[in-house]
């Protein structure tokens, strides 16, 4: 049973589609990179799968079923810039939000939820910052808090929207280690990613996207210069030199 199957997905904000006939399947227990130029519809793809924006056509199946948020199979890490970090709350409280689905309506998170949230903060190396006001965290620390919140959701499939943007090298390392840990636990993780240099190192599987799916499959088969040319078109020129080096290695 595939964790994620997308068939002929089309999404349009205006007349022009942002995603058109996108189809792919994702294997279980792998790290999957979603790669493509700006405006390729990477974030839109995640949002459409999660039902955050309506789709115009197509089928999306999560473990053979229509996606329902209340099944709690899916965890989500939105872009860090999508929230107001001056919100009056601390790191632990944000991570606890990941437990809200388990806690249920009208009830408050209990002692066990707090323990789980602390455990998740520890996994991202942020336990010392549990009671820190979130506006006083650095960008990398905020990203780690978001990851910890997704871990607290205790899902089987994770969607992460550009978790590596604006974080320092140490945080990037910590995040990728965490993703590998999730993989070892049999979780499936889909990550919107920008840095072509690290794709081969980080991901088992890639989805090359530019409004249409250009290619999807195991990284060594699909992540080729030819496919990248088709994905990025003319925009690849400035990447090409570096990329060639990577290809030849």
């Amino acid at each position: 049973m595939k964790p994620v199957v997308v068939e002929n997905l089309t999404v349009a904000y205006q007349k022009k589609p942002v995603l058109s006939n996108v189809s792919f399947e994702v294997p279980e227990g792998k790290l999957i990179g979603i790669i493509g130029p700006n405006g390729a519809g990477k974030s839109t793809l995640i949002k459409a799968i999660l039902g955050l924006i309506p789709k115009a056509a197509g089928e999306i199946k999560i473990y053979d079923k229509k996606y329902r948020a209340k099944d709690r199979v899916v965890g989500y890490v939105p872009q860090r810039g999508s929230v107001d970090w001056d919100f009056p709350t601390n790191a632990l409280d944000v991570v606890l939000m990941g437990r809200y689905g388990h806690v249920g309506w009208f009830k408050r998170p209990g002692k066990k939820d707090t323990e789980i949230a602390m455990e998740c903060l520890k996994k991202v190396g942020m336990e010392e910052y549990a009671s820190r006001q979130i506006s006083q965290l650095s960008g990398g620390q905020q990203q780690r808090v978001f990851l910890a919140r997704a871990l607290a959701q205790d899902a089987k499939v994770y969607f992460m929207d550009e978790p590596f943007v604006g974080v320092d090298a140490a945080t990037e390392r910590a995040i990728i280690e965490l993703l590998n840990e999730l993989k070892r636990q049999g979780k499936t993780v889909l990550v919107v990613h920008h840095d072509l240099q690290t794709v081969k190192e980080y991901f088992d599987h890639v989805i090359l996207l530019n409004v249409n799916t250009v290619a999807a499959g195991a990284t060594e088969e699909v992540f080729t210069l030819e496919n990248l040319h088709r994905t990025y078109g003319g925009k690849l020129s400035f990447l090409e030199k570096d990329q060639l080096v990577v290809e030849q290695k």
């Binding site: 949002k47 999660l50 039902g51 955050l52 329902r68 948020a69 209340k70 099944d71 709690r72 899916v74 965890g75 989500y76 939105p78 999508s82 929230v83 107001d84 919100f87 709350t89 944000v94 939000m97 809200y100 689905g101 919140r149 959701q153």
Partner: peptide, 15 residues
Amino acid sequence: KVLTFDPSFAKGLGL
């Protein structure tokens, strides 16, 4: 609270 802080995450939780 979660709706105010992060509406798309709230939706992702199934609220």
